Simulated scan of single mutants.
Amino acid sequence: MTGPLLLTGANGRTGRAILKSMAAASIPVRVFIRDEAKADALLDLGASEVAVGNLEAPETLRAAVEGAAKVLHIGPPMYAGELEASLALIDASMKAGVAHFIYYSVMHPLSRIIRHHRLKLEVEELLINSGLTHTILQPSRYMQHLEPIWPKVVSEGVHAMPFDVTRKFNVVDLADLADACAVVAGSDRYNFGTYELAGPEALSQEDMAAIISEVIGRPVEARAVPIDEMKARARAAGASDDRVEQMEIMNRHYDAHGFRSNSVVLECLLGRPANTYRSYVERVAAEKGAAL
């Protein structure tokens, strides 16, 4: 690489995990953030440069990509402006001579009933037709969805999600996804590929609850949260009406279909087995504690 990799979404959960893996792989990263006050924390995580701007301000995108060898673009969760912002970034990258554009998409973008899946599919099409050297990564649902509810799981013995407890998901460890991003960014071998990245086990909420029970040594029950209750909680937490609506559509889709794939592609990229759900839960228990 003759310049840094520009990482959008760098201050989010996904961005921070990817930044750590990039730093471990000695890949220089210029982080793109909205709030300059977050810069020092990201520099401490391994960023080499900071660019301040906004995905909705094309002039800041043009400045951010200048001199970058690669771009890894992570759109905000359920972002209604994903198509427009991504198009602006792709255009800026083309004009700046970026050598490789990596798009962090979603598994099953063809599930177009879910808006952010449909928008990511449209971005994929734009990127493929742009002429840029590109790689598309399609991650599954994260194992890390457990962490915000971990204290409640431990204290109340309930693992609650807003969908059928028997539906199967190939949840994936964000740590594996981050390492896969570093692999792709560090080599030209994966140029022009589209890679579906999922975990190694098809697990229902009941399966996950059973694994958590075994790890913490206490019973944990899987429970389906009614959609209306999920919506009320989201509104109480400050979610916008649009965000609540999109959450409902997504979770109704999960309730009907689950989210299935396999870990073959992820393990080929990593050159090792993907992390299991049990290994992830053991890590969370060690970091966050399992005491009542």
Rank of each mutant, 00 (worst) to 15 (best):
L6P: 03
L7P: 03
T14D: 12
G15P: 10
A17G: 05
I18G: 03
M22G: 09
I27D: 02
P28D: 11
P28C: 14
P28Q: 12
R30S: 01
F32M: 01
I33H: 08
R34H: 12
K38D: 02
D40F: 03
L42A: 04
D44V: 14
D44M: 11
D44W: 09
L45W: 06
G46S: 11
A47R: 01
V52I: 04
G53N: 11
G53T: 07
E56Y: 11
P58M: 09
R62N: 15
A63W: 01
V65R: 12
H73Y: 02
P76K: 09
E82L: 08
E82M: 07
L83H: 11
S86D: 01
A88Y: 00
L89S: 05
I90M: 04
D91H: 12
S93E: 00
V98S: 00
F101Q: 00
F101V: 00
I102N: 02
H108F: 02
P109D: 04
S111C: 11
I114D: 03
H117Y: 06
K120M: 00
L121D: 02
N129D: 13
S130R: 00
S130D: 00
L132A: 00
I136T: 08
L137F: 02
L137I: 01
R141D: 14
L146E: 05
L146R: 07
P148T: 06
P151M: 06
S155A: 15
A160K: 08
P162A: 14
N170I: 11
D176V: 04
V183H: 06
G186Y: 04
D188T: 09
Y190W: 15
Y195C: 01
G199F: 09
A202F: 10
L203I: 05
L203N: 05
S204A: 10
S204Y: 07
E206R: 13
I211A: 13
S213A: 14
I216H: 03
G217N: 09
G217L: 08
P219C: 07
P219A: 11
P219T: 08
V220E: 04
K231G: 08
A237R: 14
A237N: 13
G238F: 06
A239M: 14
D241C: 11
N251D: 08
H253Q: 10
Y254V: 03
G258D: 09
L266F: 10
C268Q: 15
P273V: 06
A274T: 03
R278V: 03
R278F: 03
V281A: 09
V281M: 05
V281R: 07
V281N: 08
E282H: 12
A285K: 05
K288S: 08
G289I: 02
A291Q: 15
L292D: 15
